[in-house]
Simulated assay, not measured.
Amino acid sequence: MEKKTTSRFRQFINLPIELVQNRTLIGNLAKNDFKTRFAGSYLGVIWAFVQPIVTVVVYWFVFTVGLRQGRPSGHPFVLWLMAGLVPWFFFSEALNGGTNALIEYNYLVKKVVFNIDILPLVKVLSAIFVHVIFTAFTIVLCWCNGYIPSVYLLQIIYYMICNFLLVLGLAYFTSAVVVFFRDLTQIVNIVLQIGMWMTPIMWNISDILVNHPTLAKVFKLNPMYYIVDGFRNALLDHIWFWEKPLWTLAFWIITLLFFVIGVNVFNRLKVHFADVL
């Protein structure tokens, strides 16, 4: 029993070491993955920004013009909405890509000498290129609307790291399981659709659940709420993440738990990947 525990611990510790050792290969694969998604199209990588921008415009029109949504937390709705959608777009794209990483790169999985541990990370990194540019676009838009960049903006980097580690842990789990249970891809898509509304991104939890404090706390246990709220705190509300110590602690406990489970499941199943694929 002790030997098994020691072996699993070593596998978990070896993963970050292997990722660092293969950082050049990971970077090159991530760049190639990003480029090949738009190969052959006239507009190329511009398509990576078309869908998010169209989505923001549609939601803005529906909630501001159609449903006459007010100013959540006193901010223009379009800015408040974008601050929530930007981290969600990355999470959604990275999780979808990471889930199918082994299936998409099955020809590499079958190579004995290839380190398949890096594949989920490659897909997550591929998604981060658009995320960085879209975040910069949101900062400029806020600036144009009178929200001058301040020192609070530095914590955007912190929340990006939070998002990155959260989705990476989930991607290791889903990419391993989907090899044996292909229906997981559809389940992940459904969960992401529901998750957008449960986070919440389109509605203000402080206004809607003002009379239901217990239910509000349950919603806030969603780790993506912590990240979405953090982006809004950095861009609009000017609140530091350490001003909410309990929610910060809860987020990291949940995220590290996801990461440990995801890596352990991946390590236990990877010896069978080549046979199944």
Results as ranks from 00 to 15, higher is better:
residue 93 E to Q: 09
residue 208 I to F: 14
residue 153 L to P: 00
residue 68 R to K: 15
residue 218 V to G: 06
residue 126 S to A: 15
residue 117 D to Q: 13
residue 158 Y to K: 00
residue 33 D to W: 02
residue 189 N to W: 07
residue 277 L to R: 03
residue 250 A to S: 11
residue 270 K to A: 12
residue 103 I to C: 01
residue 106 N to V: 02
residue 111 K to R: 13
residue 153 L to E: 01
residue 228 V to Q: 05
residue 227 I to W: 04
residue 72 P to S: 07
residue 26 I to F: 07
residue 111 K to S: 06
residue 155 Q to V: 07
residue 263 V to E: 05
residue 88 W to S: 08
residue 223 P to T: 10
residue 213 P to L: 07
residue 163 N to V: 05
residue 264 N to M: 15
residue 140 V to D: 02
residue 119 L to W: 08
residue 224 M to Y: 05
residue 31 K to Y: 06
residue 196 M to C: 01
residue 244 K to E: 13
residue 87 P to I: 10
residue 127 A to K: 04
residue 250 A to D: 11
residue 128 I to Q: 13
residue 89 F to H: 08
residue 114 F to N: 08
residue 160 M to T: 01
residue 153 L to F: 14
residue 94 A to D: 06
residue 29 L to W: 07
residue 134 F to A: 06
residue 75 H to Y: 15
residue 21 Q to M: 11
residue 71 R to I: 00
residue 220 K to F: 01
residue 19 L to Q: 11
residue 273 F to I: 02
residue 256 L to K: 01
residue 172 Y to W: 14
residue 183 D to M: 04
residue 262 G to P: 01
residue 135 T to R: 07
residue 37 R to Q: 14
residue 163 N to I: 05
residue 192 L to G: 01
residue 105 Y to S: 11
residue 32 N to M: 13
residue 57 V to K: 00
residue 143 W to M: 09
residue 275 D to Y: 12
residue 56 V to S: 01
residue 95 L to T: 02
residue 214 T to H: 10
residue 3 K to L: 09
